[in-house]
Design a protein around this nucleic acid. Structure first.
Lengths: 336, 336
DNA sequence: TACGGTGCTTGGAACGATCAAATGGATCGA
DNA sequence: TCGATCCATTTGATCGTTCCAAGCACCGTA
């Protein structure tokens, strides 16, 4: 049987409560006693019974995260990595992670309410927040602690904690890296209206203007490799010598267009998924570890926010013949 | 405040224990009383305090699942989908899912032991089991309930519950579908020695031999699109008119080779990941929902096993010009 | 000497459920 | 009529922790 507080207390010759204090509020117990108690804890291999603690305190020190239905693979991988990072950070803070599924936003809110009320989880992470996200208001009203991964795209939203990746900075770095070696950098993104997409386009535009280059090679398509392929063919015809994309999915299509045209043009994706690793093109890495750490940091404080700067993962692949890419990698950080 | 057992008992005019029985062992309470109790439960919106229950019973009705580090994206997506399916099935059985990370197999075993001993989770799912998997023996020795996703590839392993996908049946179906329309079906797989890879190659060989075709167009490369591309170029040169692959990653490379060669040859992948959806090639779907259901079914029974038959997800994509693919889709299920 | 304060420790109660044993009736055969 | 058996329900104890109010030394000050 596992040792209990009383066992440790007996071993150390003190009361239960003193052991409890030694563990939870060490500063209020006498140093000598503390040492004796800790010795007993080690000797018995004691670790507190979390169920008992949770019953008493009605808090679970557990974070609830919804597993989204994996629609397209690329997005899925991203959230998977995020979940991994959150779980790792949570363990570091002696917290657990409970996952759940939900059919839609309303169902998610209902499930979160249920989990929170039964204190199976006492804080939540919202992913894929979008324009006028009703989950945000619902949870804020209920007073349930949460952090959104994704900035509030409209001003009307209730003030809340959020963390987001600075997509603008990401594409800016990617564009600057291309500018440092090539000249005519094109952007392949999504149609206007998606907050994240507009930000990413903005980063490219910023970098082009800062370099005094015309930001005129620009196409917008749905997040689909086939559409991307056509668009890139046009961009190449228009004289593009480097392609910065809003996602790895688009980059995948771009690579396809290049291989058809036998062109050696650097392509940079976004998200740094397995596709980028597999095909060996550079991609902007969202540094989800940093995001997760920021999320955990905000979970139990005031409504606040963090903007995490992504990093360009420069990659040279011998096969796909992207000399520009290779030299960028060799250059190190002199781009910018 | 939330209603407790005593509240319900008072409302229904019975004792705590009777309410407890009504909820946990309804058959031993008098029908009339049961009805009265349930009415009270509804009226008060009662739901049991799980922490109290867990403290008393020291069981959590929770399944522990390790989040693997996402090395390559394709594999990652697969486990993500599996986790989603497990969580969904678990909810159906009124169970929760706790996730955790671990650095390696030993760390995983240690973490599982810790979670099990503190009864934070009382059953576990092992993923990516491989040859001579030490986790299996360690957990079997400790008497910790678990189900492996992946069959035991060696005979020496301790008897345990497992579920696996019948990869052989999957590539067999894929090959038969290609045979029904093309003639010379090639296989692109992994080097000998990986159990799953050998099975998948076996399915192709089975189908070829059953059709009286020579099974001689066969290449083995690492799971890398670039290598796959070269191999497929050779296969095409050798007269292949259809390519069945052991993974979507390989299929991705195959598609690349086709687009270079401008060949309209059906390619079939394995895992049905986002890449397959994005590029529009057919792929064998592991039906992870079925796998998850099987896993949950085995979690609390005797050591047993299930082999889930995957299904070919036939897909016709207008862009990639794969007429064979398209007609296969139209044929429906006449490809045996 | 008495008194209030501070630092550390203590025992009892409570969190909300289940377990184990006891109770009170009804039914039935001897 | 009595005891045995069964059914439905109740009572008291318990799981292992934290909360709470009180206890006890010891100190400096009046």
């Amino acid at each position: 049987m596992r040792a209990t507080l009383s066992d440790v207390a007996a071993q150390a010759g003190v009361s239960r409560q003193t052991v409890s204090n030694a563990i939870n509020t060490p500063r209020i117990v006498h140093p000598a006693t503390l040492e004796r108690v800790m010795a007993a804890v080690d000797a018995l291999g004691y670790s507190p019974n979390l169920h008992a603690r949770r019953l008493r305190t009605s808090s679970a020190r557990t974070i609830g995260v919804r597993l989204e239905p994996v629609a397209d693979g690329v997005h899925g991988v991203l959230l998977d990595r995020f979940l991994h990072a959150v779980t790792e950070q949570a363990a570091r803070l002696d917290r657990h992670v409970l996952v759940f599924t939900a059919d839609d936003a309303d169902d998610e809110v209902a499930t979160i309410r249920s989990l929170a009320q039964r204190s199976l989880a006492d804080a939540f992470v919202l992913t894929s927040t979008d324009h006028r996200d009703r989950r945000v208001d619902a949870l804020a009203d209920s007073g349930i602690p949460f952090v959104a991964f994704g900035r509030p795209w409209d001003e009307g939203a209730a003030p809340h904690a959020w963390v987001d990746v600075d997509g603008r900075a990401g594409t800016r770095e990617a564009t600057e890296a291309c500018l440092a070696i090539g000249d005519r950098v094109a952007f392949l993104g999504w149609p206007d209206g998606s907050g994240a997409g507009d930000e990413r386009r903005g980063g490219w535009r910023d970098a082009m203007e800062a370099a005094g280059m015309p930001a005129n090679l620009d196409r917008a398509v749905e997040d689909d490799p086939a559409e991307a392929q056509d668009a890139v063919a046009e961009l190449l015809a228009a004289g593009a010598t480097a392609i910065v994309c809003a996602s790895d999915t688009l980059a995948l299509g771009a690579i396809g267009a290049l291989s058809r045209a036998d062109a050696a043009v650097p392509v940079v994706g976004f998200d740094d998924t397995g596709v980028a690793a597999g095909l060996g093109f550079s991609s902007v890495d969202q540094s989800l570890g940093d995001v997760a750490a920021a999320v955990l940091g905000l979970l139990h404080g005031e409504p606040d926010h963090r903007l995490v700067t992504p990093r360009l993962h420069r990659r040279a692949h011998p096969r796909w013949g992207l000399p520009a890419q290779r030299s960028a990698a060799a250059d190190g950080k002199d781009a910018s």
